[in-house]
Simulated assay, not measured.
Amino acid sequence: MIWIICLLLIGGYLLGSIPSAVWIGRWFYRTDVREYGSHNAGATNTLRVLGRRAALPVFVIDAAKGYGAVMLAHLADLQGDGLFFLKIGLTAAAILGHIFPIFAGFKGGKGVATMAGCMLAIAPIPMLMGLATFVIVLAVSHYVSLGSMTGGVLFPFYILLVDGFQPYKLLFGVLVAVVLLITHRKNIKRLREGTENKTFLFIRRPKA
């Protein structure tokens, strides 16, 4: 069983390592998004550098690889808490793969979309509530980082609201919130300084 779990974790990391932003940028736009903008290989930087048409498939692929990584847990003969902890491990493996992708020189993104896919697999309704929060905050503030952090911080509360007090699932929600805050440290600083980049997803960017 141990070797099966190890293989699954490796598989989760390899799925997370699929650098959709890098590959789509290079193959279709002859551009490495990591050389521009925030230098992250994620959907947000792809949106800023290459536009919506490139960012949408990047987001979908990144979320799908997180969801798929967690679903690998069902290949193991585990039930109950054991299955849940394996899903948590696969979540960590997929996000680690996205941040440090073996297929793109270990230089990836922050893993927000990949984490969203993992969240969807583990706590679908709370995750969709978090996604709705993200969209609302983004539409009002035009800050992707603020939307991501707000949705992430509220995620454990949504779990409590929807699923009740389930210690392990609630702990997962808290870990998601903490990871999002840690990976957005620079964004928090820029938000406080008023220098964070705005993203106008639904309307045209106002002229300066």
Rank of each mutant, 00 (worst) to 15 (best):
G105H: 12
L171P: 00
V137S: 04
L161R: 09
K169Q: 13
V135W: 14
G105S: 09
A123D: 03
G108K: 06
Y168H: 10
T114I: 03
K107M: 12
P126M: 01
L191M: 14
P126V: 03
F157W: 14
G173T: 00
L161E: 10
K107G: 07
V178E: 11
G147I: 05
I136R: 13
I188T: 13
Y158Q: 02
M127P: 01
G117H: 13
L138M: 14
Q166R: 15
G164E: 07
V140E: 14
F165N: 00
I188H: 06
S148Y: 13
V112G: 05
V179F: 15
G164H: 01
L128N: 09
V135G: 05
L131C: 12
L180H: 11
N197F: 08
G173C: 04
T150Y: 15
L120S: 03
E193F: 09
Q166A: 06
I182K: 09
F106D: 04
C118Y: 04
M127Y: 02
S141M: 14
G151W: 08
M129K: 13
R192E: 09
G108I: 02
Y168T: 00
N187Q: 08
S145P: 05
H142V: 01
M129N: 12
E193C: 01
G105L: 07
S148W: 11
Y143R: 05
R185M: 14
Y158F: 15
L154A: 07
F165M: 00
S145N: 10
D163N: 15
H184A: 07
